[in-house]
């Protein structure tokens, strides 16, 4: 009955760090999720923690996360996800939005 936690770690070649120190996006509504990304020294790896009420779909989470991390060549990054029954496509969209936020150039910098 307790919440299900998935921990996932991946190290790819030539990883890139996110621009900002941290970023957050999304609301844990029904069928939705929130994503927190934090720059962290992990020897180039990406560490992911997913907290979700859903069990039995760990392999799908792993596939979605793997393709996201490899496609965007991410590294030295901590990703935390609080999920409330989101579908894989929603997860992908929110991850992409979080990354866009994490790499956004703030107005003050221009």
């Amino acid at each position: 009955m307790a919440l299900h936690e998935i921990n996932y770690q991946l190290l790819i070649e030539n990883p890139k760090k996110i621009r900002k120190e941290w970023a957050h996006i999304g609301v844990v509504g029904s069928g939705d999720l929130e994503v927190l990304m934090e720059r962290k020294d992990l020897n180039g790896a990406v560490q992911v923690k997913v907290v979700t009420p859903v069990t039995g779909f760990d392999f799908i989470w792993n596939r979605v996360l793997e393709s996201f991390i490899t496609e965007n060549q991410l590294g030295d990054l901590l990703i935390e996800i609080n999920d409330n029954n989101a579908t894989p496509i929603v997860v992908s969209i929110r991850l992409a939005q979080a990354l866009a936020e994490a790499n956004r150039v703030e107005e003050e910098e221009i």
Partner: peptide, 11 residues
């Protein structure tokens, strides 16, 4: 309280 009940949490 929510994790004990298996309910989704928000940061």
């Amino acid at each position: 309280h929510l994790p004990v009940l298996g309910e989704a949490i928000a940061l």
